[in-house]
Nucleic acid binder design. Structure first.
Length: 377
RNA sequence: GCGGUUGUGGCGAAGCGGUUUAACGCACCUGACUGUGACUCAGGCAUACGUGGGUUCGAUCCCCAUCUGCCGCC
């Protein structure tokens, strides 16, 4: 089998997992953070940048690639890795999140979701089978079940119906899945309701997926609720399969997730906020456009080893940002991604040395994160 | 020299006798962004009605003078 998670160590202090995820496009260590490249491109970064970042798995999106350039264009190029010239593991999201994010332009039925194409208004229909068919053609190493991602909060009544449908969709997707080189993950939904999370997780486990995602997260819930969602889901998932927490990229939530047994994270946060001038640093958040950096010749973060921090000053980066020079988006994206990748790297080391609990506490203390100020990013 | 025209916060630009804290853009200063519809969204600052008179219960808005820029003519 080309795809499996090899658990190498479990932290005696916390139970957090260190492992190696084997994929057809190479091995990656977990826990890991996966940059998002929706349209087969991590915005402003080249594959060479991604290699230097040690980015590992890159995400792309079924819905967006379906619309442009179309899955056949990608298949014609030999699959998404060849198409975008990234020789590493990739993952495609199913389009389920777009049911949430494009909620004003869609209608959900048992069969699937009717979308209004956000580019030209054209009516489109995406079903579990269609999503899998597209993902088969895109050819990523890891693909996602087509799920419904309800907003937060949703009523128990609605969530129950939604979860039952998501489970049926997962089963339909599994039946439709034809490419045995791709690992299809089931997605646990159920909002903040423990009974629905349990039900969903158990039903999906019966279908025996090679990995499981925790979805319905990062849709407006607070951090404590997010952590409950993880807890309510993860305890029913098999220990030998990878767990992927979808859409979470703030560093505090990543650490909390890892402590709870999560192996994989993805998020647009580091790249999106970078494009808007906000940076994650070992001293907390920094906004490069702030006037106080006008004459500042220090790097963004003196503890960072990224290309940007090794070569550029805050003063220059601020100048680029203020002048809207495109280069700044690349340089800042590189920094934020490297920050999270380095964080998970340190976490892996801490897990192997059975001190992840201490690491997490130290980190939170250093960043001034506590119950009074629970917010990282 | 004569005629016309213009003059509103750093810049551009509404308003044209009585709902104005005098719009709105840009710039400037901040904040947000969590399976990317995103160089987006939100908020804030600002010694702004050329100057001096006059008409009016009331003038950015009307009249006179003056200064400034622009256009045209001798």
């Amino acid at each position: 089998m080309d795809f499996y998670l090899e658990i190498k160590h479990i932290c005696k202090q916390t139970g957090a997992r260190y492992g190696i995820l084997h994929t057809p496009h190479g091995d990656v260590e977990t826990p890991m953070f996966m940059p998002v490249g929706t349209l087969a491109s991590v915005k402003y970064l080249s594959p060479e940048d991604l290699y230097e970042l040690e980015a590992g798995v890159i995400l792309a999106n079924t819905y967006h690639l379906w619309l442009r350039p179309g899955e056949n264009v990608v298949a014609n190029a030999g699959g998404i890795q060849k198409f975008m010239n990234y020789n590493g593991p990739m993952l495609t999201d199913s389009g389920g999140f777009q049911v949430f994010s494009l909620s004003e332009k869609r209608k959900i039925s048992e069969e699937g979701v009717t979308f209004k194409n956000h580019l030209n208004g054209e009516k489109l229909f995406l079903s579990p089978e269609k999503s899998i068919e597209i993902q088969n053609k895109l050819g990523a190493d890891i693909i996602m079940s087509f799920d419904e991602c309800p907003g937060y909060p949703s009523t128990h009544d609605y969530m129950k119906k939604s979860v039952e449908r998501t489970i049926r969709w997962a089963e339909r997707g599994k039946i439709a899945h034809q490419n045995n080189k791709q690992a299809l993950f089931g997605i646990v939904q159920g909002g903040e309701y423990p009974d629905l999370r349990q039900y969903c997780a158990k039903e999906l486990v019966k279908l025996d997926f090679p990995g499981y995602s925790i979805g319905g997260t990062s849709v407006g819930e607070d951090k404590e609720t997010l952590y409950k969602m993880i807890d309510y889901s993860i305890k029913y998932l098999p220990k030998d399969k990878p767990r992927y927490l979808m859409g979470v990229g703030s560093y505090d939530a990543i650490l909390e997730g890892i402590m709870r047994g999560v192996d994989m994270f993805d998020c647009v946060l580091p790249t999106r906020i970078a494009r808007h001038g906000a940076l994650m640093t070992s001293k907390g958040r920094l906004n490069i456009r702030d006037k106080k950096y006008e004459y500042d010749l220090l790097p963004i973060d003196d503890e960072c080893d990224c290309y940007t921090c090794k070569n550029y000053t805050r003063s220059y980066l601020r100048h680029l940002y203020k002048c809207e020079e495109g280069l700044v988006k690349r340089l800042l994206s590189i920094h934020n991604l490297r920050f999270l990748i380095n964080l998970t790297k340190e976490v892996r080391k801490a897990i192997q040395e059975d001190r992840f609990g201490d690491f997490k506490n130290d980190f939170f203390e250093k960043y001034g994160l506590n119950s009074k100020n629970p917010r990282g990013f």
